[in-house]
């Protein structure tokens, strides 16, 4: 809510988990983790843990939602009741409804929807444990799940958050940094096309700081993008081994 006097940056310039300001947490990405889904992925970014599954392109129910010129994309971002400190009701909150919308809009520009008229592509994201930057981890996982479902895409979507804590711009904010820091700004982009598909700012930044933060976070997205490509390749290398 408001900047507290909590020291989030040490005198040495390190963050409470020992990271440098421009350092992201370790990310583990696994593709093809849920058998029933057409595509799926699991992403672990520090203590933020997320599953994403893609079903489709498939028939639309209810039918009137179908579009004659392109596939419809539906997205559901959902937190498990045990993913946060105090049990969260499993019913979708206003926050989850908003995040489902912005995540859908972050993924839509990447998908060649025109190739699948009259169908729907369902994207489900389940937050297993939340420790900041859950929407970014969700986008990373969902875009891997879409690619592994074999859905033609213009590019993968990478995402990362940038924050401001104790006056310092930092990458990949944790829950504590989000709650006690001054700013949280998630950004998603298609790195190969240099296009932004999600941008939300929550907190005060001067225009100069904003430009700096965007440059910083887009560099991080490029790094995450390389890891996403490696995670996809790893799945296919494994598939070759089995056969």
């Amino acid at each position: 809510m408001e900047a507290k006097n909590l020291a989030l940056i040490s005198p040495e310039g390190l963050r409470i988990d020992g990271r440098k300001p421009d350092e992201i947490r370790d990310i583990k990405m696994t593709v093809g983790v849920l058998e029933n889904a057409d595509g799926s992925a699991y992403v672990e970014q520090g203590n933020t843990k997320v599953y994403a599954a893609v079903y489709g392109p498939r028939e639309v129910h209810p039918r009137h939602l179908a579009s004659p010129d392109k596939a419809v994309i539906r997205c559901r971002y959902h937190m498990t009741p045990f993913s946060v400190e105090e049990r969260k009701s499993p019913a979708p909150s206003r926050r989850e409804i908003e995040l489902s919308k912005v995540i859908r809009e972050a993924l839509t520009p990447a998908i060649l929807l025109e190739q699948f008229p009259f169908t729907v592509i369902d994207v489900f994201v389940e937050i297993i444990n939340a420790d900041g930057s859950t929407r970014c981890a969700s986008i990373i996982a969902a875009s891997l799940a879409l690619a592994s479902a074999g859905i033609p895409m213009r590019d993968l979507v990478a995402a990362c958050s940038v924050g401001k804590v104790n006056g310092v711009l930092v990458l990949d904010v944790t829950d504590t940094e989000d709650k006690h820091g001054e700013v949280d700004m998630p950004l998603a982009m298609m790195p190969n096309r240099n296009e932004v598909t999600l941008l939300q700012l929550d907190g005060v930044l001067s225009v100069e700081e904003l430009e700096k933060a965007i440059a910083m976070v887009s560099k991080a997205c490029r790094d995450i993008y390389e890891r996403q490509k490696n995670a996809l390749k790893a799945k296919y290398l494994e598939a070759r081994k089995v056969n």
């Binding site: 520009p109 700004m185 932004v196 598909t197 941008l199 939300q200 700012l201 225009v207 904003l210 887009s218």
Partner: peptide, 27 residues
């Protein structure tokens, strides 16, 4: 905006914005 500072941003819509366009929007 509050004064000359930004305090909230939301990108909406089904298509993307280039980074250059994003900064132009702010200006």
């Amino acid at each position: 905006f509050i004064g000359d500072k930004t305090c909230s941003i939301q990108k909406r819509g089904e298509k993307a914005l280039s980074i250059e366009e994003t900064l132009r929007c702010v200006n």
